[in-house]
Amino acid sequence: MSAMLEIVGLTKLFPVRNGFGRKTGDVRAVDDVSFSIEKGKVYGLAGESGSGKSTIARMIMGLAKPTGGDIRLDGHSIIGETGTRAYGRKVQMVFQNPGSSLNPRRTVGQSIAVPLAAHGTPGGEHRRRIAELLEMVQLPADFALRYPHELSGGQKQRVAIARALAVAPQLLILDEPTSALDVSVQARVMDLLVDLGRQLGLTYLFISHDLSLMRNFADTVGVLYLGKIVETGATASVFEAPQHDYTRLLLASVPVISAEEEAMRPTIPLIDGEIPTAEQLIALRAAVSQRIEK
């Protein structure tokens, strides 16, 4: 098995400025994160909002510049190459909210045609390819003429998936692909992603705060807390024997229904309150890193 994507020591700092615009410190949104994804596997990146999950996705897509570290695709560093067309042919992303990732003024067909045109599919073949892609995500071909507001959330997300698949990428980043959908729709979209992954031999980076989804979907899990990966390993082992307090906290927060699952619920004192703000974070930094070392 070869690594499709390797992330090495990836770091992103956001400067914090005081009222006069003077820099007073940095928020370490992503702090020395390393992981790798095997070809054809699903890597799950778990963590609550503010933990830096989306920043990692944005850096891999070239929408944000890393402060430090390296991103390697098939063994080649792609820093400075992210965002180019050649890169976009290999790596694509499905955004969190299909309501805002599809242009409200463009039909589904027009939206799917964007990557086709950009990557050199001749105009005459667009219609056929759009129909094929819609079929791939189990939507009828006549949806091509509809506008996003005429579709349900699940249908919109299917369109977004079809659009990302238009360039036949090898790696697909799923940034909370189902968090904007209701639970019943969620399951169907996840099934579709599993099927597509198998059919097309896709590699996934699956980003979510939803651990129950992750458990069913990911082969390997990394748990992200305040910008650092605090625990990583095969999904089953992380879920059965969480090593880090934060992982246990996350697992304990998963709503469970069956008695069997209830029995597995770890009993640890829960941390109260909200995730800290950027300013508090800096102050908390030292304390947190000590805890991580333990």
Binding site: M93, L102, A118, A160
Partner: peptide, 15 residues
């Protein structure tokens, strides 16, 4: 996101 999506999909600036 739809503008960012177009960027990652390789659309031109003109587009």
């Amino acid at each position: 996101e739809f503008v960012e999506a177009a960027e990652t999909l390789g659309a031109s600036k003109f587009h």
